[in-house]
């Protein structure tokens, strides 16, 4: 049976130490993770727990030391473009307008002009970005820029969307707006999303499943299902309880880890 979605088995990642004699740095040690197709999964871990490394490996930007990763049954491969990625670092190209930035993944796939235009216009409309399609990133607010980045990641209809702390640099108000926007978008489209954050509440409000990972070397310490109807209010009792459970899991490893 071909598993659909993302499946990770026994993933290891080590970086060689600074000198030949020093020990290798183990970032991921035997990590297992499943993101079923069409689900929204968050990974929560303290800063420096290897979350970004994990996403980069899934995206095919870095090789794993060992282990098995399947995205809809196939190993990660940059050339297949099966992945859309959003992060604070992977910024928009400042010399391209909103339209041109969103069109970029399709250009890289050498898609024909006509179809490309139609697809870009469609996603700009869905995202409510039509009004700023001729603007350069410099002229957009931080929240708008992240919206454009998400549109860019989804325009090529990837198998899954990886999001690495996409909202963490934004003002609180804007962050809440974008979280709501992302939820609504997901409810419409049911993309398979793996969302990395250190904001526990964000993880609980957004996702079907919250995966808590330990500090380096990272492994999964708890998997928490969130069976709450969307859109979720933050200050409600069920959200708060789940939030506490995630925090306890994080703290528990913090105590036993040392």
């Amino acid at each position: 049976m071909m598993a659909s979605g993302l499946s990770i088995r026994n993933l290891f990642k080590e970086y060689p130490g600074p000198s030949r004699s020093s020990a290798a740095q183990v970032v991921l040690s035997g990590l297992n993770l499943d993101v079923p197709a069409g689900s929204f999964v968050s990974i929560v871990g303290l800063n420096g727990s290897g979350k970004t490394t994990l996403l980069r490996i899934i995206a095919g930007l870095e090789p794993a030391t060992s282990g098995d990763i399947r995205i809809n049954g196939a190993p990660p491969d940059l050339s297949r473009k099966a992945i859309g990625m959003v992060s604070q670092e992977l910024a928009l190209l400042p010399w391209r307008t909103t339209y041109e930035n969103v069109a970029l993944p399709l250009e890289l796939r050498c898609m024909g002009d006509k179809e490309r235009h139609a697809r870009v216009m469609r996603i700009l409309r869905v995202f409510g970005l039509g009004g700023c399609s001729a603007q350069y990133p410099r002229a957009l607010s931080g929240g708008m820029r992240q919206k454009v980045a998400i549109a860019r990641a989804l325009v090529a209809e990837p198998d899954m969307l990886l999001m690495d702390e996409p909202f963490s640099a934004l003002d609180c108000q804007i962050r809440l707006q974008l979280q709501r926007f992302l939820t609504e978008l997901w409810m419409q489209r049911r993309d398979t999303i793996l969302f990395v954050t250190h904001d526990v509440e964000e993880a609980v409000v957004l996702s079907d499943i919250v995966v808590v990972i330990s500090q380096k070397p990272a492994r999964v310490i708890d998997v928490i299902s969130v069976n709450l109807p969307r859109l979720r209010e933050r200050a409600t009792l069920p959200v708060t309880e789940l939030r506490r459970r995630v925090i306890l899991a994080l703290q528990g490893q913090g105590v036993s880890g040392h």
Partner: peptide, 14 residues
Amino acid sequence: VDSGLVEAVRAMGG
């Protein structure tokens, strides 16, 4: 040139 931009294009399959 910001290395993040290079990564972004690489991640898109460039």
